[in-house]
Design a protein around this nucleic acid. Structure first.
Length: 740
DNA sequence: AGCACGCCGACT
DNA sequence: GTCGGCGTGCTC
């Protein structure tokens, strides 16, 4: 009789090694893999997920306790194993892996799932005794952290999370302070913030499909998928098609074919902002069998969509990377649109890659994986069967790309670029200008003593921002912001110089130079304002003429037929990045932007400003030759033993001091060496990383021919160091398998 | 991660 | 003596 439930408690602790066994009482029916249980755990009660149901336990039965309750809503078993696999694959914890697949609204909170739109927050405030204690500190004995916490609270109440960031005070320290009556702790119920705006390009009209019949290429692509789709056989396919070659049409037909077999489809897009427009295309075909799933839906909405998918009412889901965890019934197809996009990599713990998760899920479900891109990753090119869509559906040619040598120029825009923009104005057309920097100027210095303005929390220079007359210096890595200096604090000189040009400055300069043509700015600062991206793009589309200035966002997925000129202001900004993927990224960015131009009747052109016009990735991009670029890139990576010919695992430590970060890293490296005495894995570093949000960091890179042994060595060494060695408590480890 | 236990320095 | 910070160990 199966009466034991193996449960993973939903806690983030690294040192905790589950699963833990619980005795299922007679009355508690329907406990299966995926059931969520409220269980007693030590002195606490905690939410956990059943990962296995067994008839026996290694522990004597009388040591086991019974769950307190079972939640109504659980997780499909298929997703439980996917979550646990991610935990392993990314060197994370079971709880964090499982958190990815839980029904919406089921946090990692203790107790029971918050059904209401509230969450509990522990808020600390200074008690009268505490204020007195600060006034004459000598009267009370306090630890360093406690003193810091008390002092921080003088500015008003704060949450535990805030205090641990500012004063390093943890729950335990605060509870002791509370026990002594120096502070008060209150559990405050706060309303979960709900997205009140419809996201994405709500206002943008969908152009009717030019053609509902497939081109010969599209048909060939589809035909090559159908056998596997109909047989329920796992297969991977890379659809390599230039911008405008009709990849979406192939996705639609493939999803329709899956649906004919009674099977569901997951469609992944790189960004939430791209969800609505893709969802709309699919809705034309599939009506209300479409669901949309992303983190900015309100909790209620998200829960409803999740339920519709789980019940099988909706059979096609569109969303960003997290939609790969959609609880669909009978998965038959996963589509990954713009598969090269780095947004598919999740930047929190676990640092999963939705493309890899999709591969795994499709494989387990016997589903077809269909990836599409105009600029595929070298990895996919090498490992996936490929089908080419060489022509644009409208029969137009790709626009000519011109590389402009910036070595002789001191302006942000070359004379030829300015002339081309002026021509756009005269013709009443539209242009897109890609500027890879937010703000006005990326750095400031003092003309007389050379002082540079840096962030006090991070080792980066502050960016000068100027918008609507307001000026600030901002750090792009943390929330730090300070007023613009009038004089240099070191030498009292009043001559402070701003260097370089960002989106704000280009916007202002173009506004002046090209008046009365309207200039629209698209970057994260502009997107945050009311209306957001959608409204901005709508205004650009509605305008008869105009310039769209912005960061990478302008290169993505929005089609404007009247754009006849695309400019990359500084193509080297991505190339200068010290990273083996920088060439691929640059190639892709230039190609994507080129795809935005030249759909107009007057044709189009692309200008790429660069200090390195002879660089091979720009040369290939100028010829629209993705194939040769990738082949060359693959040869280079093979020689240097980079992915896909090797696997990289990046381990980072962070701490309040460099010494602590380094020490922890050395301890880890020792533990790792013990795990892999004879391995062929190469351990590079540790090397210090630049300081971020007040935390000093250290980085270790492990390079290995095979992924599994490297990952498992790291996975074994981690808890040993975290739990065993007495590295100072505030050291944090972070592991990134296959960093982007 | 939480939570309790127990060691040991600091102060009555 | 006692108070309280801080290190250590455990959770089915």
């Amino acid at each position: 009789v199966a009466s034991i439930a193996r449960v993973e408690p939903l806690t983030t602790a690294r040192a905790l090694r589950g699963p833990f066994d619980y005795r299922i009482p007679k009355g508690m029916e329907q406990v299966e893999v995926g059931t969520m249980l409220v269980v007693p755990f030590g002195r606490q009660r905690m939410l956990g997920v059943v990962v296995e149901v067994a008839s026996q336990s290694e522990l004597p039965l009388e040591r086991l306790v019974e769950p307190i309750a079972a939640l109504e809503q659980g997780v499909p078993a298929e997703l439980v194993s996917l979550g646990l696999w991610i935990a392993d694959d990314c060197c994370s914890t079971p709880a964090r892996g499982l958190a990815l697949v839980l029904p919406p609204g089921t946090g990692t909170a203790r107790g029971h799932a918050p059904a209401a739109r509230t969450r509990e927050l522990l808020v600390a405030s200074l008690a009268p005794a505490g204020s007195a204690a600060i006034a004459d500190g000598s009267e009370v004995r306090l630890g360093g952290r406690q003193r810091l916490a008390l002092e921080a609270l003088r500015n008003g109440p704060a949450t535990v999370a805030e205090l641990s960031a500012s004063a390093g005070a943890d729950h335990a320290a605060l509870r002791r302070l509370a026990a002594r009556g120096l502070i008060e702790l209150q559990s405050r119920s706060i309303r979960r913030e709900l997205a009140d705006v419809e996201l994405g390009s709500a206002g943008i009209a969908v152009r009717p499909l030019e053609r509902r019949t497939l081109t010969a290429d599209q048909k060939a692509a589809l035909d090559s998928l159908l056998p596997a789709l109909r047989a329920g056989r796992h297969e991977r396919l890379l659809l390599h098609g230039v911008t405008g070659s009709g990849k979406t049409e192939v996705y639609l037909r493939a999803a329709a074919a899956a649906l004919e077999q009674g099977r569901s489809t997951i469609v992944l897009v790189p960004e939430i902002a791209l969800t609505p427009q893709t969802a709309r295309r699919f809705r034309e075909w599939f009506g209300d069998r479409i669901a949309v799933l992303h983190s900015r839906l309100g909790l209620g909405e998200r829960y409803d969509e999740w339920q519709r998918l789980r019940r099988g009412d909706a059979r096609v889901v569109v969303g960003p990377r997290s939609a790969v965890f959609a609880p669909v019934r009978d998965l038959g197809l996963i589509v990954i649109d713009e598969e090269h996009d780095s947004a598919y990599k999740h930047e929190g713990d676990p640092r999963y890659d939705a493309r890899r998760v999709a591969e795994r899920r499709a494989e387990l479900a016997g589903a077809v994986l269909l990836c599409g891109s105009a600029t595929p990753r070298a990895e996919s090119w090498l490992r996936t069967r490929r089908i080419v869509l060489p022509e644009r559906v409208d029969g137009q040619r790709l626009p000519p790309v011109e590389l402009i040598d910036m070595r002789e120029t001191h302006h942000a825009l070359h004379r030829r670029t300015r002339e081309a923009l002026d021509e756009v104005r005269r013709e009443g057309a539209k242009a897109i200008v890609l500027v890879n920097r937010r703000g006005w100027s990326p750095f400031l210095d003092c003309r007389s003593c050379g002082r540079a303005w840096m962030c006090p929390q991070c080792d980066v220079s502050l960016t000068f921002h100027r918008e609507h007359g307001a000026q600030r210096l901002l750090c792009h890595h943390c929330a730090h912001s300070e007023p613009v200096p009038g004089v240099c604090p070191d030498c009292s000189s009043t001559s402070v110089a701003r260097h370089g040009a960002g989106t704000q400055r280009l916007e202002a300069e173009l506004q002046e130079a090209l008046a009365p043509m309207p200039v629209f700015r698209l970057d994260t600062d502009a997107a945050r304002r009311k209306g957001g991206i959608a409204e901005l793009l709508h205004r650009f589309e509605q305008s008869a003429t105009g310039i769209l200035v912005g960061t990478q966002m302008v290169a993505q997925g929005h089609d404007f037929p009247e754009v006849s000129l695309a400019v990359v202001q500084d193509a080297d900004s991505t190339l200068r990045f010290p990273d083996f993927r920088s060439e691929e990224r640059t190639f892709s960015l230039v190609s994507q932007l080129a795809g935005r131009s030249g759909r107009s009747e007057r044709g189009g052109r692309v200008l790429v400003q660069t200090l390195l016009p002879e660089s091979s990735c720009l040369q290939h991009a100028a010829r629209h030759d993705a194939g040769s670029f990738i082949e060359e890139e693959l040869r280079r990576r093979e020689v240097l033993a980079y992915p896909p010919f090797a696997e990289l695992v990046e381990v980072t430590t962070s701490a309040a001091t460099q010494a602590a970060a380094d020490e922890a890293m050395l301890a880890f490296k020792e533990a790792l060496d013990e795990k892999t005495p004879d391995s062929k894995a190469q351990v590079l570093g540790p090397a210090p990383l630049f300081r971020l949000k007040g935390r000093y960091r250290s980085r270790l890179l492990i390079k290995s021919r095979e992924r599994a042994p490297a990952v498992s060595a790291v996975r074994d060494a981690l808890p040993q160091v975290v739990a065993g060695r007495r590295t100072s408590t505030d050291v944090k480890f972070s592991v990134d398998v296959d960093p982007q």
